[in-house]
């Protein structure tokens, strides 16, 4: 645990030095959140039928996306790992005393956490005090908030599990562009980052339900606003746990195979 902690601390210090980068990031996310909300509100205002998701829940949905962006987005890439793989230097990594899968997993987790801690609180503070149609409402209930925190944390583990596959795929494709692009475009869409999952047509919601992506963002954010009630949320958390187990098991297995290939081919 100690080495991971110091990796995290180092990242944090590094992140602090880029203060203007952080401020710029915050401003960007606020702006994007505003734009998305205005677009959705415009659509809602002309709607005759009752939309499947009330506006205030949608507002929470969009803001939470922006606040926790670095926890949930898939195109968060670590070029160091890509370079290790494409250059074949990954063989040296095998000399480390800890398992490669868990090491990379911890590294990616640390990066996301440190980047999120730097950015989420200022945005959170601002969006709680925005004028009415844009203001982020407090969580639906104390239970909902606790469940949301659990769901968000587990969702983070799901994201890292999925992104590990992006890195592992580079062992075969030898170029990070294709796989990152494809997985992140599809992942972003099915996580409800473009339009919220409840606003999708029914058949697409079914598709999203079978994929891991909506468990990373869509699910925790709807738990927060009470769009998914507590009882259902518990089942959702169970589903997240299953996904985490499946993703890490499959990821570790494919990474072992990929490494064996390298060892056999001699890099």
């Amino acid at each position: 645990m100690r080495p991971y902690l110091s990796v995290w601390k180092l990242r944090f210090i590094l992140g602090m030095q880029y203060r203007s980068a952080a401020i710029a990031g915050i401003a960007t996310q606020l702006f994007f959140g505003m734009i998305f909300l205005m677009i959705f509100q415009a659509f809602y205002s002309g709607s005759a039928a009752e939309p499947p998701m009330p506006l205030d829940r949608l507002v929470s949905y969009v803001w939470l996306q922006q606040i926790f962006l670095s926890l949930i987005m898939l195109w968060f890439r670590d070029n160091e790992i890509f370079q290790l793989i494409t250059s074949g230097n990954v063989a040296y990594e095998l000399c480390r005393p800890c398992g490669l899968y868990s090491f990379w997993y911890a590294k990616l987790l640390g990066q996301r956490l440190s980047s999120a801690t730097l950015r989420c609180f200022p945005i959170l503070l601002i969006v709680f005090f925005l004028p009415k149609p844009f203001r982020l409402s407090p969580p639906a209930s104390p239970e909902a908030f606790v469940l949301f925190l659990a769901a968000l944390a587990l969702g983070l583990l799901v994201v890292v599990g999925v992104s590990m596959f992006i890195y592992i795929s580079v062992f075969w494709t030898l170029s990070p562009v294709g796989s990152t692009l494809m997985i992140s475009v599809a992942g972003e869409f099915f996580a409800g980052m473009i339009i919220p999952v409840p606003l999708m047509p029914h058949w697409l919601q079914t598709v999203a339900g079978f994929l891991p992506f909506r468990w990373t963002a869509d699910f925790p954010f709807r738990v927060y606003s009470g769009d998914i009630p507590a009882g259902e949320a518990l089942w959702g958390i169970a589903a997240q746990l299953v996904w985490i187990a499946a993703l890490t098991a499959a990821g570790a297995w494919t990474l072992r195979r990929a490494l064996r290939r390298i060892v056999v081919q001699g890099g």
Partner: peptide
Amino acid sequence: GQFFIPFSVFAGMYLMFERFGEL
């Protein structure tokens, strides 16, 4: 890949219009 990036955004637009009819 560049072909597909705005594609998902456009698909989102299409789906919003499908649900709400007009903007």
